[in-house]
Amino acid sequence: MAAATVATVPLATADFKSDDGTPNFRSLGRLSAAVNRKIEPFGAAFLAHARRKRHGRTFSEDDRIQALARVKKTEDDDGGEISEPEDALMLQREAKDWKGQDHYAVLGLSKYRYKATDDQIKKAHRKKVLRHHPDKKAAAGQVDSDSFFKCIQRAHEILSDPVRRRQFDSVDEAADVEPPSKKEAQKAFFKKWRPFFESEARFSNRTPVPLLGDENSTKEEVEQFYDFWYEFDSWRSFEYLDEDVPDDNADRDHKRHIEKKNRNARAKRKTEDTKRLRHDAATVQQVDAVLDDVDKVLGVVDADGLAKLVDELKIAGSDSDKVKAVFVATVTDLTAAGKVKEADVKVFKS
Rank of each mutant, 00 (worst) to 15 (best):
D172I: 00
D172V: 00
A175W: 07
D176M: 14
D176I: 08
D176N: 15
D176C: 12
V177F: 05
E178H: 11
E178I: 10
P179S: 09
K182L: 14
K182Y: 11
K183H: 06
E184K: 10
A185Y: 06
Q186V: 04
Q186F: 07
K187V: 13
F189S: 05
F189K: 02
F189M: 06
F189H: 08
F190A: 03
F190N: 02
F190V: 01
K191I: 08
K192M: 10
W193L: 02
P195W: 04
F196H: 09
F196N: 04
F197V: 02
F197S: 02
A201K: 04
A201N: 04
R202P: 01
S204R: 05
S204V: 03
S204P: 02
N205T: 05
N205A: 05
R206M: 07
P208R: 09
P208K: 08
V209M: 07
L212P: 00
L212S: 00
G213S: 07
D214C: 00
E215M: 05
N216T: 14
N216L: 10
S217K: 00
T218N: 03
E220F: 00
E220L: 05
V222S: 10
E223D: 15
Q224K: 15
F225T: 00
Y226M: 07
F228G: 06
W229Y: 08
W229C: 04
Y230I: 09
E231Q: 12
E231M: 06
D233Y: 02
D233G: 01
R236A: 00
S237D: 13
E239A: 11
L241R: 12
D242F: 10
E243N: 10
P246W: 01
P246M: 06
D247A: 14
D247L: 11
D248W: 09
D248K: 12
R252Q: 15
R252G: 08
R252T: 11
K255A: 13
K255I: 13
R256T: 12
H257M: 15
H257T: 13
I258K: 07
I258E: 08
